[in-house]
Simulated scan of single mutants.
Amino acid sequence: MQSIKVADYLNHRPVTFNQDMRIEAAVEKLLQSGQSGGPVIDESRRVIGFLSEQDCLKKMLEATYQNESHSVVSDVMTKDPLCVNCEDSIVQIADMMSCNKPKIYPVVDEDKRLLGVISRANVLLAIDKHLHDTYMSGQRYV
């Protein structure tokens, strides 16, 4: 199971944001993507933050009370998010995710450039496929 790598299950086309994007535009992009969050990247595609539904919800709720919003992504994003790399084990990521860590991790190269994201759903799929393959191969020899 340790041989199953993030590279085999990551989402190569995640929703991304830039730090100067208005929160309202980011929320719309997030809702259209169906993801619960995404990396904030700079012009070189380096990960500089992470924006989640929870971050947006707090700011949007605040805007409804004030009847206006002037916030941008950099105001609410998580700075220096936890990132993983392609060679990390799915088991290692599953352990991290089971301890109330983020639901989605940016996957980066050695220069912190975004390669994709890995979500809890991706990790569950990897584990399920491995267990199914193991079960099926065990059944052949019965």
Rank of each mutant, 00 (worst) to 15 (best):
V40K: 08
G49K: 04
D75P: 02
Y141F: 14
S52H: 02
R45F: 06
K103N: 09
K58R: 13
D8N: 15
T16Y: 03
V6A: 12
S74A: 14
C86S: 12
H132C: 08
Y135M: 12
C83R: 11
G116A: 10
A63Y: 01
S98A: 11
V27K: 04
K5G: 00
K58F: 11
A25Q: 15
S52C: 07
H130R: 09
V15F: 04
G116M: 10
P39E: 06
E62D: 09
M77E: 00
D20S: 12
Y65D: 04
E24M: 06
N85C: 14
D128G: 12
D8H: 14
C56W: 01
G138M: 07
Y135Q: 07
S137H: 08
V91W: 04
A121K: 13
G37I: 10
A7M: 06
D8C: 09
V91N: 13
A25L: 13
R140A: 13
P14Q: 09
F17W: 04
V27M: 09
V72D: 07
N18G: 00
T134H: 06
Y9V: 00
Y65N: 07
L31T: 13
Y141L: 08
P102V: 01
R140W: 03
E62K: 01
D8R: 11
Q32G: 14
I93G: 04
C99N: 15
Q66N: 09
I93Q: 03
Q139F: 04
P14H: 07
G138R: 05
N67P: 01
V108L: 02
L124P: 00
K112S: 15
K101M: 12
M1D: 05
A26R: 03
L114C: 02
M96Q: 10
V27C: 04
K5M: 07
R140Y: 04
G34C: 12
L131A: 07
S44P: 05
H132S: 14
I127R: 01
K129D: 13
I90P: 01
P39C: 11
Y105G: 05
D42L: 02
Q54S: 14
H130N: 08
H70P: 06
P81H: 05
Q54E: 15
M96V: 04
S44M: 06
K5E: 03
T134E: 03
L125A: 15
Y65K: 10
A94D: 04
L131C: 02
V76F: 02
V15L: 05
S137G: 08
D75L: 00
I4L: 15
Q2S: 11
R120K: 12
E87K: 14
M1S: 14
Q19S: 15
K103Y: 05
H130L: 05
D95A: 13
H130M: 07
V6H: 09
G38S: 07
Q2I: 10
L61W: 11
V15N: 00
R22W: 02
S69E: 04
Y9P: 00
L131V: 12
Y141Q: 11
M60S: 05
D42F: 06
H70M: 10
K59N: 09
D128K: 13
V123P: 07
S119I: 05
I48W: 05
L57A: 11
I127A: 03
L57E: 10
C99G: 08
Q32V: 10
C83Q: 11
I41F: 06
L115V: 09
V47K: 03
S33G: 15
I41R: 02
S89Y: 05
K59G: 06
S98R: 07
Q139K: 06
